[in-house]
């Protein structure tokens, strides 16, 4: 998660709009109003940051209508902002939802989105900073912080695998003729390598059998907060050291368990090591015979090449 300075919260909106700077001032003010959390009753907060009544603050820059006050009009946008982001967060984190249960999940979602408002034009990126946020704020998920981080990392990896960039796969001829001491290979950018303390892959498969959803299109309306659904009491996340490659084949997302040498080998290749050096790293401390190592690497490479994981290094 990139460190960002706190967003400015203006005290009041400009009373006239004659310059681009005035426009910026108005937009900063309204954006700050929309980003403020809703109350427990899903209403706009009754007081502004300086303690003034929100009815007065809204009335200073918004016109009332014949059926809605300025407060109620601004509140429509405040609700839309939160409903949209929370719905997207929920869609992207089905495993985390199941792990934490509804109450803790929504508390986490609101805290995260308040501190980390979207910095991307696409909601696809909403949860990019979530693993780092969870580590930095363990109180929101204790005593399951480690599990929550593992699940969040896995769910973000699936988003990357879905539509992340790819590079042309390396050819068999290039693999065959290059010297291992000089050959540097890349690993597809859409593939994420994860070393986790929990069997998140099994867990998320079980969770997804109960859940799913689709993102909306161009309408700027979100009807209401969608808080129902399974949570708690579902599949159990087992503690187990697992190494995973989250990837895609024919544009479908998959995840595959890796053994220790495979994981180390791919990590070393991604870090720019030569094939020979990557193999050394992969089998560091191993007592396997050289022939056995060679056989395993050969089999792994054959599979990875078929899956399109290996590409030219940048």
């Amino acid at each position: 998660m990139r460190a960002r300075s706190p967003l400015p919260v203006p005290v009041r909106a400009p009373s006239a709009l004659r310059t681009t700077s005035d426009l910026l001032g108005l937009q900063r003010f309204m954006a700050a109003a929309l980003r403020r959390r809703l109350t427990a009753g899903e209403r706009m907060q009754p007081r502004w940051t300086d303690g003034r009544a929100m009815t007065k603050v809204a009335g200073e820059f918004m016109k009332p209508g014949d059926r809605l006050s300025a407060f109620e009009r601004l509140e429509i946008y405040n609700k839309q902002y939160w409903y949209r982001l929370l719905e997207s967060f929920r869609e992207d984190c089905p495993g985390l939802y199941a792990l934490l249960g509804p109450k803790r999940f929504w508390r986490l979602a609101e805290a995260y989105l308040e501190e980390c408002p979207p910095h991307s034009f696409t909601l696809r990126d909403l949860c990019e900073g979530l693993p780092a946020y969870l580590r930095a704020n363990p109180g929101l998920t204790a005593p399951m912080t480690g599990a929550a981080v593992d699940v969040a990392r896995f769910e973000w990896a699936q988003i990357v695998a879905f539509d992340g960039p790819s590079r042309p796969p390396v050819s068999e001829a290039r693999l065959a003729k290059a010297s291992p001491g000089r050959l540097v290979l890349g690993v597809q950018p859409y593939l994420t390598l994860l070393e986790l303390d929990h069997a998140v892959d099994d867990y998320v498969i079980a969770v997804k059998q109960h859940d799913g959803g689709l993102r909306g299109g161009a309408s700027n309306a979100v009807g209401r907060r969608r808080r129902k659904g399974a949570g708690g009491g579902g599949p159990v996340l087992k503690r187990e050291r697992v190494r995973l490659a989250v990837h895609r084949v024919d544009n479908q997302v998959y995840f595959k368990r890796l053994d220790v040498p495979e994981y180390r080998l791919l990590r070393a290749l991604r870090a720019g090591r030569t094939l020979a050096r990557a193999c050394e790293i992969a089998f560091r401390g191993s007592r396997e015979a050289i022939e056995e190592r060679a056989r395993r690497v050969g089999e792994a490479f054959a599979l990875w090449r078929r899956l399109g994981w290996l590409c030219r290094a940048t």
Binding site: P8, L26, Q27, A31, L34, R35, H119, N220
Partner: peptide, 15 residues
């Protein structure tokens, strides 16, 4: 605004 996105289509002040 300021590099953050509301993901909403907010109305303009008509000036």
């Amino acid at each position: 605004v300021d590099g953050t996105y509301t993901h909403d289509l907010l109305p303009m002040p008509y000036t």
